[in-house]
Design a protein around this nucleic acid. Structure first.
Lengths: 192, 192
DNA sequence: CTTGGTTGTCTAGCAGTGCTAGAATCGAGC
DNA sequence: GCTCGATTCTAGCACTGCTAGACAACCAAG
């Protein structure tokens, strides 16, 4: 292996370290605690090194978001794959989505609450984000109902999940209703 | 009127000026532009004056949020009052909610995206916030369906609206589906 | 009208933020 | 061992929210 190759490899590894450290720090202490100084200290480099990998903090958040989108898509596909019926698949999808948002709040924030400099619903949308939407579409298409475009239905179902995820995490919904909210969502929205 | 009364009145008026100016600035240039220095300059006082009215920036955001909750509740009640049928009322509610979020993005952010130091779904929740939820409840109760607690149904319907509002404003949903999303939401969720 | 004291306001500054220019250091190839 | 380009760090900028202490305005009493 050439010297150049080794350097490139080490550089890529350091970039992964930055993203992983940012994510860890955000999950532990919230995104406010992810300052460039704190992050630099944790990876044991100085601040300008961060800027040699990313244009700024936004891009770091964006990188965490893309990582999250990949995980979320995989989790949804895994959960729906083993479910035997359309109803079971939709329920699994909803529960998995909400569980991911609940257990990875910082990543979910990076995806949807913070500005990671990412675009959506157009050609420049990063592939992992489009794929996460595709994962939803795969399961939801079969319960969209007659004459309803799957994309339209998926947008609505996704919006409902997103609303539930954000409002419940902000403490704006009663925790004791959590399960029944999901049940009602599936019962009403999906055509079974 | 005593001197004390006059001072109290002037003080209250200045407080309203602060909130109104913060809101205006946020709608014009986003909340990031609402710095204590910028805000102080616009009201033609120095920064410490802001802190004699509010504990900090969070409380100013919270004040804008409460103003927004009051407006939103009124808008929903006005829109549903004239609608002749349950279906028309629910549709009016949904459209009004989403229109408010779209036309007052900074206020909506103050309510739900930013931390205004407000609590929800408990006893210490400010009255205007509880009342806004009550306004939703009034119209949605009649379409909750048999055996479904109105509060549970309202939480779900509200979550869906909130998800639609935030995702569509972030450019994550296709604009051309906007009307059909609302139509589908009402059709599926409400029991008519 | 002057004084005294309270109330209100402002100036100036702190510690922290994201980000960057230029100095210092490292290391690969001769 | 030396050179010189690539890499990394130090030190600093302009900005943020927030506040201590100096200053000014004002009202009541003499």
């Amino acid at each position: 292996m050439s010297v150049q190759e080794r350097k490139q490899r080490e550089r890529a590894q350091r970039e992964r370290l930055i993203v992983a450290t940012a994510r860890e720090l955000a999950e532990q202490q919230g995104w406010d605690a992810v300052t460039t100084r704190q992050l630099a200290e944790r990876i044991e480099y100085s601040q300008p090194v961060l800027y040699s990998h990313f244009r700024g903090k936004r891009e770091i958040i964006g990188a965490v978001a893309i990582e999250g989108a990949t995980e979320l898509a995989a989790a949804i596909r895994a959960a729906t794959a083993t479910a035997p019926s359309p109803r079971a698949r939709v329920t699994a999808l909803a529960r998995t989505y909400l569980a991911y948002a609940e257990h990875n709040p910082a990543v979910y924030d990076a995806l949807f609450q913070l500005d990671g400099g990412l675009t959506f619903a157009n050609d420049e949308t990063p592939a992992p984000l489009k794929d996460a939407f595709a994962a939803l579409l795969e399961t939801l298409t079969e319960v969209a109902g007659d004459g309803i475009e799957p994309g339209l239905f998926t947008e609505l179902f996704w919006s409902s999940l997103h609303g539930l995820a954000t409002l419940s995490r902000a403490g704006r919904l009663l925790p004791e209703y959590a399960d029944r909210r999901v049940e009602l969502l599936v019962d009403r929205l999906a055509v079974l």
